[in-house]
Design a protein around this nucleic acid. Structure first.
Lengths: 208, 208
DNA sequence: CTTAAAAAATGAACTCGTTCAATCTTTTTC
DNA sequence: GAAAAAGATTGAACGAGTTCATTTTTTAAG
């Protein structure tokens, strides 16, 4: 039996991640004790620490899964975007936002963001930062594509423009997570209100 | 002696804050133990907890001091800004950035940001968020003033534009704090590269 | 000035994330 | 197939933030 250990390892990795995610959602990150996660995953506390460096890493692993899926869905939109700046931006961003609460609660997002800021040198925080860069690159790519297709003025610096759009949508998402009472629709409306006038500025298609 | 207690209280509050800030800077936030902070401030651990809710609150108190000073300095710039969009933005933002490392190290900023995201309901985190809003309002005010003075196109939505500028400068500052090796000058240059093309777009003064 | 009430200070005890020496299981070697 | 080597598991012990019943200090009342 060549892969016995490998199989057991994969199984335990999954069980720990699932148990943790369940408990994080049910009782919140802080209240979910490592001991409880280990018990639910049917491993000892020590074993859990052989699979994840620390409590935060378990959470960031879920985030990585989440962002990876969003990136993939985004690729399709960027490849063939609506030929209207405001609408294209809105489509991509709503895609991001709609997916964001699939695996993670607001509280889990807040904790993940906090960890990635506070300990930027841990492997999983590096991964988080890298995924963020990829999301940013995707927004830049969208603006670039729109320029190539002639709906964004040729004079526009697509790199600068895309980065600013991304930093804004990201900051607004952070605020959304901060305020438990804010619904997704408010977030979308507010970001759209910010981006629409700028989209009009850089668009070749003028609305009368 | 009417104000004996009040005087002692103020004195202890200050001593705790100073001791904590010193130790945070010297050994980093995590390594500075509450026990050591209490000892340096010449109070017991229990007393320290009568003055601050938890370790993070001591740090956020320092941040509040920092941001308050920056806001004040910003008021002067906004009242009488350079009559050139890119330059006005650059002046205000460099003011923010230059002051940012006066009381706090990058590591302290990271921790403070992490706390304010993760526990948004604590009183001092609310204060942090409020100060952030004020900074944002100041950037919006700058764009507004520039529009009133005729250097920003009348058609521009100054609220949206200011918010986007602020979210961007804030996101870039966060990244600056994440990367220990990044010098202040790089941060300024990068933000300027992002804002300059947008400034040109909204400016009435065209550069040939 | 004495005494009662209120406020503040104290530090031992508690919690929970994390570590690591000892033990057990799987794989490899001959 | 037995023995040795490598890998994985375990849970008691540790450290640091936080709490709270008790003690001490200050203020107010008579």
């Amino acid at each position: 039996m060549a892969g016995l250990r490998a199989k057991q390892k994969a199984d335990k990795t999954r069980r720990i991640l699932e148990s943790a995610t369940t408990l994080f959602r049910e009782q919140g990150y802080d209240s979910a004790r490592i001991e409880d996660i280990a018990e639910m995953a049917e491993v000892s506390v020590g074993t859990l620490y052989n699979y994840y460096q620390n409590k935060g890493d378990i959470l960031v692993a879920t985030v990585a899964m989440e962002v990876t899926e969003v990136l993939e869905a985004g690729t399709r939109i960027v490849a063939n975007p609506p030929l209207n700046v405001a609408e294209a931006l809105r489509t991509l961003i709503e895609q991001y936002y709609d997916h964001s609460l699939f695996y993670l609660s607001k509280e889990m997002w807040r904790t993940a963001m906090a960890i990635s800021i506070q300990q930027p040198e841990t492997p999983l925080s590096r991964r988080y930062t890298e995924l963020d860069s990829q999301l940013c690159a995707q927004v830049v790519q969208l603006v670039q594509t729109l320029q190539t297709r002639g709906v964004v003025h040729a004079s526009i610096d697509t790199q600068a423009m895309g980065e600013v759009f991304f930093n804004n949508l990201n900051a607004m998402f952070t605020e959304f997570c901060r305020v438990d009472a804010m619904p997704l629709e408010d977030l979308k409306a507010r970001v759209n209100a910010q981006h629409e006038p700028i989209a009009a500025l850089i668009s070749t298609v003028k609305i009368v």
